[in-house]
Design a binder for these strands. Sequence first.
DNA 1: GGTGATACATAGGTAACATAGGTATCGCCC
DNA 2: GGGCGATACCTATGTTACCTATGTATCACC
Lengths: 112, 112
Amino acid sequence: MGKPHDSLIPGTLNVLILKALSQGALHGYAISKWIQQASEDVLRVEEGVLYPALHKLEKERWLRAEWGVNDTGRRAKFYSPTPLGKRKLQAEVARWKRSSQAVSTVLDAEEA
Amino acid sequence: MGKPHDSLIPGTLNVLILKALSQGALHGYAISKWIQQASEDVLRVEEGVLYPALHKLEKERWLRAEWGVNDTGRRAKFYSPTPLGKRKLQAEVARWKRSSQAVSTVLDAEEA
DNA sequence: GGTGATACATAGGTAACATAGGTATCGCCC
DNA sequence: GGGCGATACCTATGTTACCTATGTATCACC
């Protein structure tokens, strides 16, 4: 346990979740599906990874949760970003761009 | 301990090291400086992070190490990629491109 | 009644990084 | 001679974050 597959880039899950919620509340399962679909099936968020992450973000006040009912009438917990979460989204996106661009630059470098 | 600053994107250190060594052997301290310089000072690899990583890569036969002397006559341990390490560099660069592109695509998505 | 999708959750394992220390040599400047 | 910063190596400890496995329950469908 604890390392195979490597679907996600560590440290990117929070910002992916926040992005998923940037246009409106979604429940956990839908967040997972949205990330998978928006990444054209490259990124998969296993449920054992997603739910603890959501609980943590809720505890840290990046998200708030509310029980509701989905399209098909099933109970589900809907998450929305708090004002703090919205600010964090901006900051985390900026950080990702900066860092990932730096990594790509290094990996494209001609000479070592 | 264990989380502040966030200089590195977790999971990218190995490939950055391999890239640094792709044009020839370097010693640890020079690897650190090279990554910092090639990333235009965005990425910094603290020594307490670098050296354990080098030892692990050596143990896993991605790198081999040899004591030598640097330009200025000081003793230093020089690392070179093994054939396995060269293959890993290609594979890890490809994986990075695929995954980081997916994250960027998601974060640029218009609609959630 | 079985299966697969939906929807939530927790438990245990491990790797990876951040921080903080520690040793030693060398050049430079006062 | 003393101090300082850069070079060059190293280990120990803490914590996060992810991976896997497993569990519950509902619902549609055949």
